[in-house]
């Protein structure tokens, strides 16, 4: 993956992640350094090329000498940092957070067009979620099929806001936003109207590609058929920011 041109006066720091000695530029975040070094850190809201959101809390890591946990996506590295990404405590927390997501809406994998290509599903498996201990919330959400090319199934939305950010920051349309608050939050287009009637959606489909689950998909796809392609994002992001 292409990197932005290295700015000469950015210092290089040394640190350890899970007892591995590493070096990194001081303007990098922990999650960026982990990804470069193939250290797996789960995340659902972070995406290279989009602004930091810090909402999914799956990338929380432990820093030696600090009592609280830090979100790897929102924390810059520093000289001498000693980071732990896979403690038993973190694993327990991550598992619970994923269970909370599964219980919040209807993620019925068996009948999802993203089945087998879903970041939530992968993470559930990686984090050992073989069942959900909290009760399912049983709230019904609508499916918006009004757009001629794409479909939005709120039941599968995890509110990561990748779609909101890509539409605003990369496409520049800001068709999407979030309405309401708390667990009543919902992704909306324009004045919470059907997507197909949006005045400013350009139908570019970036939101669909960055969506980690089967919430935003192409029309006409059947179970397991929706495969997402996000390779364009770092390229577009770099060119946008170079402007």
């Amino acid at each position: 993956m292409a990197q932005p041109a290295v700015i000469p006066n950015v210092r290089v720091v040394t640190l350890t992640i899970d007892d591995r000695d590493l070096s990194a530029r001081e303007d990098e975040t922990i999650i960026e350094v982990c990804r470069e070094n193939h250290i797996p850190i789960p995340s659902l809201c972070h995406l290279d090329g989009l602004s930091v959101w810090g909402g999914c809390r799956l990338c929380m890591v432990e820093l030696e000498g600090q009592a609280r946990l830090f979100a790897a996506c929102a924390t810059r590295v520093a000289e001498g940092m000693r980071i732990h990404t896979m403690s038993e405590k973190l694993k327990r927390y991550r598992r619970t957070i994923i269970e909370l997501l599964f219980a919040e809406r209807h993620h019925v994998c068996a009948v999802c067009v993203s089945n087998g290509h879903c970041e939530l599903q992968w993470l559930a498996q990686k984090c050992g979620v073989d069942h959900v201990r909290v009760p399912y919330r049983q709230a019904a959400y609508p499916v918006d099929s009004s757009h001629e090319m794409f479909r939005l199934d709120h039941n599968r939305c995890i509110l990561c806001t990748r779609c909101v950010r890509v539409c605003d920051e990369i496409e520049g349309a800001h068709t999407w936003d979030i309405m309401g608050r708390g667990t009543d939050c919902r992704v909306i287009s324009d004045l919470a109207q059907p997507w197909g009637t949006s005045d400013n959606c350009t139908s570019c489909g970036k939101c669909v590609q960055v969506c980690p689950t089967g919430a935003l998909v192409k029309q006409g796809t059947s179970v397991g058929e929706m495969v997402k392609d996000q390779h364009f994002l770092p390229i577009l992001a770099r060119r946008r920011h170079a402007q």
Partner: peptide, 21 residues
């Protein structure tokens, strides 16, 4: 806390609701 949670992060948004339940 459940009704005042902004909804941004999962543990607060979904966790407070489960704890309330």
């Amino acid at each position: 806390c459940m009704t005042e949670s902004c909804g941004k992060c999962i543990p607060c948004r979904a966790g407070t609701q489960q704890m309330h339940g």
